[in-house]
Simulated scan of single mutants.
Amino acid sequence: MTTSSSIFDCGERLMDGTILIYGATGYTGKLIAKAAVERGVRPILAGRNIEKVTAVAEPLGLVGRAFDLGAAAILDAALKDVSVVLCVAGPFSATARPMAEACIRNRVHYLDITGEIDVFEAMALRDAEAKRQCVMLLPGVGFDVVPSDCLAAHLKRRLPDASDLKLCISLGDDMSRGTAKTMIEAIAAGTRMRRGGRLVAPDRAEAGSCDFGEGERATFRVSWGDVATAFHSTGIPNIEVHFEATSAVEAFVRMPRLVKSFLGLGFMQSFLKARVDHMPEGPGEAARRDGRAILVGVARNDKGGSVRSRLRTPEGYALTAATALDAAQRVAAGDVKPGFQTPSLAFGADYILSFEGVTREDVNA
């Protein structure tokens, strides 16, 4: 690992190593908190409701803390003894901005597990501000986007003059309540991609296909965090992401634009999110243990050259618990690059290979 020399300039405060996990009462937050204790890490657990925080923290022997994100003074006080915030409270459209602002003010490093394109872009715009404060902004340290971002960086390394990048992901239908609410917020935005370096939202989600290792499977283009992060990591101007066409994905992408616009209205958003609260909290232990995800990336250049690589990982939520905790530990230990970063920019294209159960192959090496 490469430790930034600016840590010394930024003072000892950023070196004491205390990690605060905000959103620890949610499905993914509890997974990360449990993983932390198993690895001998003692984070502060936090959320909005002290009773819920205490119910998670006490059985793990951890300290709990409750605060809302609405008041700057309260946030500043809550972060006074913290080196790293790992925000796992979504939707991040509501939580990322106030928490990141507080981290910048208080010179605390900020990490989250967002997959929201607008959040990534907003964080990138704060790069200079974060650098002035010697603060690292590292959103997307979960399944979205650690494996896909590292895959994109690997493909760029294989084909330095790549102009087009296509990522295909197969991961199944199971999701947590937080992920479902994030998807609901994204309904009205349409399916986004990057063309000529700019984010665009075509009227229709393109169908395609991908060989995940057992022959061609149908896919649909979706809005995924790499439309933002892979551009910042690689500079490739044309980027799109496809999911394997499971029933849930197909139902979402084939929804008429008028219906999506209606579902984007405030009262419909509230209704749909209330329905989500009746869903199971997230995949069970067996599903996390036995599940797998496959990512395939193809990069092309303007000369007709192309490279293809395939990445196999553990189930998405299991991997998120591992990558988010590891990233927070690395940053708490001083592995820091101030400013906006992506996982591959922070830790390298091969970072994902450091996790158990992850393999990568270059299909056309």
Rank of each mutant, 00 (worst) to 15 (best):
G196E: 09
R330K: 12
V276G: 07
A321T: 02
A274M: 14
L86N: 10
A205Q: 02
L60E: 07
F262L: 15
K273G: 06
K181T: 12
E244N: 09
P280N: 13
F355Q: 10
P338Q: 09
S148L: 03
A180T: 04
D164I: 02
E12T: 15
S83R: 07
K166T: 15
E281K: 13
I184P: 01
V241F: 13
D81Y: 07
F347I: 05
G348D: 03
L171K: 00
A327Y: 03
D335R: 09
M268D: 00
R300I: 02
G357T: 08
G235Q: 07
V296M: 03
C134A: 15
V363G: 06
F243S: 10
K156C: 06
K166Y: 07
A153E: 10
A245G: 11
I50M: 14
G266Q: 10
S223F: 07
V259T: 14
K52C: 09
K34S: 06
V336Y: 04
D203E: 14
S309V: 00
V37W: 03
D226S: 07
P147R: 08
E250G: 02
P343K: 07
A322S: 14
L60A: 09
R292F: 01
M255V: 04
H242A: 10
M99G: 02
R194P: 08
T359G: 06
D326V: 04
D362F: 13
R105I: 11
R39I: 03
D362E: 15
G140P: 01
I239Y: 11
G334Q: 05
G11P: 09
G197D: 10
E206Q: 14
A332D: 03
L125P: 00
A100H: 01
Y22A: 01
V146W: 00
S344G: 09
L345N: 13
V56Q: 02
A153N: 03
A299M: 04
A230V: 04
S5M: 13
D144F: 12
F243D: 00
W224L: 09
S270Q: 14
S261Q: 14
P343E: 08
G316M: 07
R65S: 15
H242R: 07
G291K: 13
A346V: 05
N238E: 11
L125H: 02
D127M: 00
A36I: 12
G297E: 05
L137A: 05
L272K: 05
Q329R: 15
G225Q: 00
N49L: 09
A365K: 12
D144V: 14
A321E: 08
R204Q: 10
A130N: 05
N106I: 08
V249D: 06
G339N: 08
A100D: 08
D277Y: 01
H278S: 12
